[in-house]
Amino acid sequence: MKKKTLLCASLLALTFTLSGCESVYYSAMEKVGLHKRDILIDRVEETKESQQESQEEFQSALEGLTTLIDFKGGELQKTYDALNDDYQSSLKAANEVSTNIDKVEEVANALFDEWNEELEQYKSASLKRQSSQKLAETKSQFSTLLRSMRNAESKMEPVLSSLNDNVLYLKHNLNAQAVSEIKGEFTNLKRDIQQLMNDMNESIAESNKFIKQMNSAS
């Protein structure tokens, strides 16, 4: 039964993603038992997974560049092609991360707006106060998570730009001298990728923490 529900949800997600109507999408999801809270948790999980994949791609690009820097003869074109493939894969993975973060922020805002509006439906002042407090806590927790995600995201563009510069330079100057000339930038790029890895690890940890908090409050 659960698999059937998830399949329906996936088909509806595709349909309404293509139509671009999020409000209709959320309503459709509720009809199959998936509320904004569930969608938020799923999207945070998806973003975490895309960050992990992005880490792997950036690490592969770093290893490819390291191989090129340490080049001591052989088929330089083949080594360059591998590096270019790593860059393209890193770019694709980074774009996926950004798209997922946007989706996380979108559903979170929808959830908080709905939650805030529904506070007015309470007749019990005590329950309304408790729900309002829980909303404030959840918004604060999410703010920490989103800030961590955006911080890691901001570190991707400089790394991608540097990788692109190196790939472009090698493309038009594919020889041992060109390889030697980009060695000076390698140290900085290696440092930037390591910082990106650290920031993504922090964001992934925040995602795990947020998912745990949301699930425990269910």
Rank of each mutant, 00 (worst) to 15 (best):
K31S: 14
I39C: 01
Q130Y: 09
L135A: 06
E106A: 05
S90W: 07
E185C: 14
L174Y: 00
D81V: 05
N116V: 05
S180Y: 12
A28H: 00
L163K: 02
G74I: 02
G73I: 01
K2T: 13
F16D: 00
E30A: 10
D86Q: 13
T47L: 00
Q77R: 09
A176R: 11
Q121D: 12
L76R: 00
A125C: 00
D42V: 07
I193N: 03
V104N: 01
D199S: 15
K183Y: 10
E206A: 15
A176W: 04
I41V: 13
Q130L: 10
Q133F: 10
V97M: 01
F58D: 02
K72G: 07
K212P: 02
K171R: 10
N201F: 09
S10F: 15
F142H: 05
E96M: 03
S132D: 06
A93L: 00
Y87H: 10
L119R: 06
D199K: 15
E185V: 14
M156W: 03
D85V: 05
D85R: 10
Q141W: 08
L170V: 03
T5W: 12
M1Q: 12
N164G: 10
L40N: 00
A136H: 11
H172A: 12
F112Q: 03
E181H: 05
S132R: 09
N84Y: 11
S131N: 07
S161C: 07
S161K: 13
E75S: 11
K78D: 10
L111W: 01
L163D: 05
I41M: 10
N109G: 05
E181T: 03
K4M: 12
S10V: 14
T99Y: 08
R129A: 15
I39Q: 07
M200K: 15
R150N: 09
